[in-house]
Design a protein around this nucleic acid. Structure first.
Length: 852
RNA sequence: GCCCCUGUGGCGGAAUUGGUAGACGCGACAGACUCAAAAUCUGUUGUCCUUAGGGCGUGCCUGUUCGAGUCAGGCCAGGGGCACCA
């Protein structure tokens, strides 16, 4: 018998779909639309299992929705700007564009081999001027509406390579290539005013009811709305007060010091003639720019010698410190320290011998403070007029008093900062601005868009190639026509991915988007991607859709109506003797069974199981899997083994099981087609008992699989299909018309249910079943309700919560009768023994619990 | 450090959302077919008590409940994000 040949069959159906343009769609107001989108990939060179998982999930949804009669938009593109292309240019001497387009070509072939229902006619790449030119247009529109501005902000500076480093390029405070200690440096940078939308971005999370709760929670915490107070402290001997922000004004009587940021104007002024402060500020600037680095550093400070007056305790003064844990970007860049009720303040106070006065007493607990600050609720003590109040009441009262005195006010603060989009790199979208000595910073004229990247660049010098290009930046000012220079910074690649979903609606339009198209297709109905994008990418995209509304490009606030965050695909990490990351295929076992580097035979260290990432090289090439077992088996495997929202560790064993199922289903249809009735035969009047049961099983499966796919529980859908396959295998036909008909029905149903996951095999089987239509144009099966309900149920009988028997009763049987049957069981009687029955709980159709 | 998530057999996981823990798959073991292997098929497979029948069992500890994998509180372990990786 011929075995199923995945390779030829898959190629055959891919050709058919391409020829029939099965997945190319146009906006059509007479049809209900459904927009399925998976996060587009970075063209790193080859697809990895994470992509296979992500795109298979999206494909199942897309094919399922199409079978449900929706007009489905399912596009694909490339997040093609970014650092790795420049690294390749430096390391291998390849031009970033050549490297990127070669990678795209290879990965496109790989994706096509997966048989995804993508509309390839809508493919876009963000590094193409046809894309980024429109991004520049959007930037200019945003600039005109005041959504973009320029501000000095901090970057990681490598003093040896004379270049700006990304956070991931800073390892233990040192540059990854030079090894030099990284400094913070201030540069003029372009910013988006995302913080203007803090409140809206926060409040609108409520409406995103098809987003995972955890993502909404993460965004909520990220935006970080806090209700607090601004308080001004009089600095002794100074005219201007010190403004602070606090979320705990109720602890003001426990204040023992003030702390200001190293970047606070007061600090900068004092540093001029105080070497100790100057040195300390310099030390702070040697810390990285990441919040993690700042939080993990030892809490340190330096006394400025200044003192402030306590607003409520006459004669009491507090010393002012410059401290490394106070952020200039948050609040006012200055705080009061209340060590008893804030851990950082406590660490700091212990280090510098500052006083620790508890002012909140937890109920029935000793307010003695050791090494742990008390941050819980309680009653206020040691605080004059606040004594005896609960924390919340005390906050309100002290703000009222401060307002009376004109020394403070209630203030809502957000943690969310404006989005710095400037990057000092070549391989990104040029910022279309021009600096003129006379006119200042001017937007480029629209007719000059796109501002294209120059091709002739070199990466042999440190710094930004655009900056040392001989001619590119020298232009005439669009205002006065005089000599001027182009902005040489390019945009953060998050900008590219903040509107690509809108561009897909009209990917070849000569403006960023066409209104009718985005009005029809947006928002994305189901967006699928990694949880690692839970905050930044999704938040930036939400901001972008608001900004595009302000500039008239669309009318939606929220770009993604439904979001699904798939778990990451993880894999062990490997390092060579020298500490370099190694790909799994570079690693193997030697004769002695030790893990070694295959080329050199040198030992390999196994690291943790971590998210697959380019930088750690712990990636698996799925090409080999597809080559060996076919795309259908690979798709089936990534869906079957783990719940889609959880992390999945790649193992080779699972793929074999999927492959076996492909064979089993194919063989079953092949061997049983003769035993089934002809295609489109009319339904007979009578069914033998076994056929009735098969039909019940089939229709229950349809109902469950439909529900599972709706909820994206693909692993459960597959388990149900396996169960039905087992039922089909167990079916004994008696040769009657009813049996033949039920067998065909079962076979057709399983082929339909399997189709979104294994589309090639399903098409092939559909044809074998005698159909001359193709499955991608076939409607999803409907479960017959009457066949999905049973008239009998099995109920569990517990005595004192322990299972003692199971009983079979009629569906929705009266509680009294159920009790009788339950108590009649011998094992139940044994368990009850001499005890008296106190109560019997009957949960209909589920369980009986006899309480003794 | 801060925020979020996860923890169930040898393994991936299921559990009608508080109601029979371990569906389905992988692996393993035994058998059938075969000269043999592969493939396929059948059966067994949480654990302990030699069996009948029971005991124990969802990271750990406490609690709520007739009943807890599921809810609450406290721990432990692993993972993700922390604003210039994408």
């Amino acid at each position: 018998m011929s075995r199923y040949n995945a390779k030829t069959v898959e190629a055959k159906w891919q050709a058919v779909w391409a020829e029939q343009r099965s997945f190319e769609v146009e906006a059509n107001l007479t049809l209900p639309k459904y927009y399925v989108l998976e996060m587009f990939p970075y063209p790193s060179g080859r697809i990895h299992i994470g992509h296979v998982r992500n795109y298979t999930m999206g494909d199942v949804v897309a094919r399922y929705k199409k079978a449900q009669g929706f007009n489905v938009l399912h596009p694909m593109g490339w997040d093609a700007f970014g650092l790795p292309a420049e690294n390749a240019a430096r390391d291998k001497g390849v031009h970033p564009a050549d490297w990127t387009y070669a990678n795209i070509a290879h990965m496109r072939d790989e994706l096509k081999a997966m048989g995804l229902s993508l509309d390839w006619s809508k493919e876009i790449a963000t590094c193409h001027p046809g894309y980024y030119g429109h991004q520049q247009k959007l930037f200019l529109d945003f600039f005109e509406k005041g959504l973009v501005y320029r501000k000095e902000s901090w970057v990681n500076w490598d003093p040896v390579d004379m270049t700006v480093l990304a956070n991931e390029q800073v390892i233990d405070g040192k540059g990854w290539r030079s090894g030099a200690v990284v400094e913070k440096r201030k540069l003029d940078q372009w910013m988006f005013r995302i913080s203007d939308y803090s409140e809206d971005l926060l409040d609108s999370l409520e409406k995103l009811d098809r987003w995972p709760d955890r993502v909404r929670l993460m965004q909520q915490n990220w935006i970080g709305r806090s209700q607090g107070a601004r308080i001004s402290f009089e600095i002794i001997g100074e005219d201007k007060p010190l403004e602070i922000y606090t979320t705990r004004p109720d602890t003001l009587f426990g204040a023992s010091f003030m702390a200001v940021s190293a970047d606070h104007p007061l600090t900068q002024r004092l540093a001029k003639d105080n070497p100790a402060i100057k040195d300390f500020v310099a030390e702070c600037h040697r810390m990285g720019t990441s919040e993690e680095a700042i939080e993990k550093a030892e809490k340190k400070g330096v006394d400025t010698g200044l003192e402030v007056a306590h607003p409520f305790i006459p004669g009491k003064t507090l010393p002012v410190y410059v401290a490394n844990f106070v952020l200039m970007d948050y609040g006012t860049g200055a705080i009061f320290g209340c060590p008893a009720h804030d851990q950082r303040d406590l660490d700091f106070a212990r280090k510098y011998g500052l006083e620790v006065t508890p002012v909140v007493a937890p109920d029935n607990a000793d307010p003695e403070i050791g090494d742990t600050a008390y941050t819980g609720p309680g009653k206020i003590i040691n605080s004059d007029f606040l004594n005896g109040m609960e924390v919340e009441a005390a906050k309100a009262e002290i703000i009222r008093r401060l307002e009376e005195m004109g020394k403070g006010t209630a203030k809502i603060n957000y943690r969310l900062r404006d989005w710095g989009l400037s990057r000092q790199r070549y391989w990104g979208c040029p910022i279309p601005m021009i600096h003129c000595v006379k006119c200042g910073t001017m937007p480029e004229r629209e007719e000059n868009l796109p501002v294209k990247l120059p091709d002739d660049v070199t990466f042999d010098k440190p710094g930004n190639p655009l900056d040392h290009h001989p001619t590119w930046k020298h232009v005439k000012c669009p205002g006065c026509g005089g000599d001027a220079t182009r902005e040489t910074d390019t945009m953060d690649t998050f900008v590219d991915s903040s509107w690509y979903f809108a561009r897909f609606c009209s990917p070849r339009a000569d403006q960023p988007v066409e209104r009718e198209k985005v009005d029809y297709w947006l928002p994305v109905d189901q967006y699928i991607g990694g949880i690692e994008h839970a905050i930044l990418h999704l938040l930036y995209s939400r901001f972008y859709s608001r900004a595009m509304k302000v500039t008239g490009w669309s009318d939606i606030d929220e770009p993604f109506a439904g979001l699904f965050t798939q778990g990451m695909v993880t894999h062990e990490t490997y390092r060579s003797e020298k500490g370099e990351w190694l790909l799994p295929e570079e690693v193997g076992h030697n004769d002695a069974g030790d893990l070694v580097e295959l080329i050199s035979g040198k030992p390999v260290t196994i690291g943790g199981i971590e998210k697959m990432s380019k930088s750690k090289k712990n990636v698996v090439d799925p090409g080999a899997i597809i080559d060996k077992f076919g795309a259908d088996a690979a798709r089936w495997y990534v869906l079957s083994d783990s719940p889609p929202d959880r992390d999945m560790e790649w193992t080779d064993a699972g793929a074999t099981g999927a492959w076996r199922f492909v064979q089993r289903l194919h063989r079953f249809i092949l061997e049983h087609i003769e035993a089934a009735c002809p295609v489109h035969a009319p339904e007979p009047e009578e069914f033998p008992e076994a056929a009735k049961n098969l039909r019940k099983s089939a229709h229950k499966t349809v109902a469950k699989v439909t529900e599972n796919i709706e909820n994206l529980h693909f692993n459960n859908a597959i388990a149900r299909i396996y169960e039905f396959m087992n039922a089909l295998g167990d079916f004994k036909s008696d040769g009657t018309e009813g049996a033949k008909w039920a067998l065909r029905e079962g076979m057709e149903i399983i082929v339909n249910l399997v189709a979104p996951m294994m589309p090639h095999l399903a098409e092939e089987l559909w044809q074998m079943l005698g159909h001359d239509t193709i499955l991608v144009e076939t409607r999803w099966p409907q479960a017959i309700k009457a066949l999905t309900v049973e008239d009998k149920v099995t109920m569990a009988v517990q005595v004192k919560g322990k299972l003692r028997a199971t009983i079979e009763v009629a569906l929705d049987e009266q509680a009294k009768i159920v009790e009788e049957i339950a108590l009649a069981q011998k094992s139940v009687q044994n368990a009850i023994g001499e005890n008296t029955i106190r109560k019997i709980i009957v949960v209909p159709n589920r369980i009986v619990n006899v309480v003794i």
